[in-house]
């Protein structure tokens, strides 16, 4: 049976209106509701289902981030992960953390925990990088199957249906492997109260970046974060002819 490692990230809730900090150094996170990255939720759900199908022996949730990342790990545990690893990254370093740093930490934890499968969300909805799965696979020298919309594990292989332009592509990779979860892979369950209560007893192992030998020195500098331009208000035209004239005037026809 396989041991599954799932990467989870705490992000601003997708229903929250994002505000840019006045100094344009980033977005406001203080006092803003956060939650589990929706794609990571899908990743956990898939791992838990593998366990329910007796394909996985253990599901370990990993998060690299500030102390509040533990909230997301608790949610993952309530959804059915068996235990968690928190690589704590202080706020100052977290501000400049990149997917490469996270991939290095994940790869090392995967080796230490003797994982056979790593599942992560295809991207985090805050920075939309879509790099962690790919780089983790490269660092480990494992095969990768990204944008999974269906996962089947059999005989030491993983069959993954991926969503590509114009259809589905099926790839077969050998274990150990890295999988990234796409939106349609599954519909994640809610963390219910009885399970939240049980999750309180599940262990969270705490590590630092030094414990996993990853240098968190920044590799890029954010120059400015800006609001998207405000959309101009539209106008109502009286009839189709005026619409066509206006479209022609603007060179759209």
């Amino acid at each position: 049976m396989a041991r599954v490692l799932v990467g989870v990230k705490r992000v601003i809730d997708y229903a929250v209106k994002i505000r840019v900090k006045p100094d344009k150094s980033g977005v406001v996170t203080d006092g803003v509701k956060h939650g589990l990255n929706p794609f990571d939720e899908i990743a956990i759900e898939e791992a838990v289902r593998l366990k329910e199908k007796k394909i996985a022996s253990e599901v370990i949730a990993v998060s690299c981030g500030i102390s509040q990342a533990q909230e997301s790990l608790r949610t993952a545990l309530a959804m059915g992960a068996d235990r968690a690893v928190h690589v704590e990254v202080p706020q100052a370093q977290y501000d400049t953390l990149l997917p490469l740093h996270v991939s290095k930490m994940l790869a090392r934890v995967a080796v230490d925990e003797k994982a056979d499968i790593i599942i992560v969300g295809k991207q985090a909805i805050d920075d939309d990088s879509n790099q962690t799965a790919q780089m983790t696979a490269a660092l480990l020298g494992w095969p990768q199957a990204t944008f999974a919309s269906e996962v089947t594990v059999a005989d030491g292989n993983v069959l993954v249906k991926r969503e590509v332009d114009g259809g589905l592509e099926t790839v077969k990779v050998k274990l150990p492997a890295v999988i990234s979860a796409d939106l349609r892979l599954n519909e994640p369950r809610y963390a219910t109260l009885p399970n939240i209560m049980k999750a309180k007893k599940k262990p969270i192992k705490k590590l630092t970046a030094a414990d996993v030998d990853v240098d968190l020195a920044p590799r890029q500098q954010v120059l400015s974060v800006e609001d998207p331009p405000i959309r101009q208000a539209g106008s109502v035209v009286p009839d189709v002819d005026t619409l066509i004239t206006k479209l022609k005037e603007k060179g759209h026809l």
Partner: peptide, 23 residues
């Protein structure tokens, strides 16, 4: 709710304070 669950006044529950989950 945990207490209500223990006392079997309620049988299952989920709690949300995130706007997306609330919606």
């Amino acid at each position: 709710l945990e207490k209500a669950l223990d006392e079997e006044l309620i049988l299952d529950a989920t709690v949300a304070d995130q706007p997306s989950l609330i919606k």
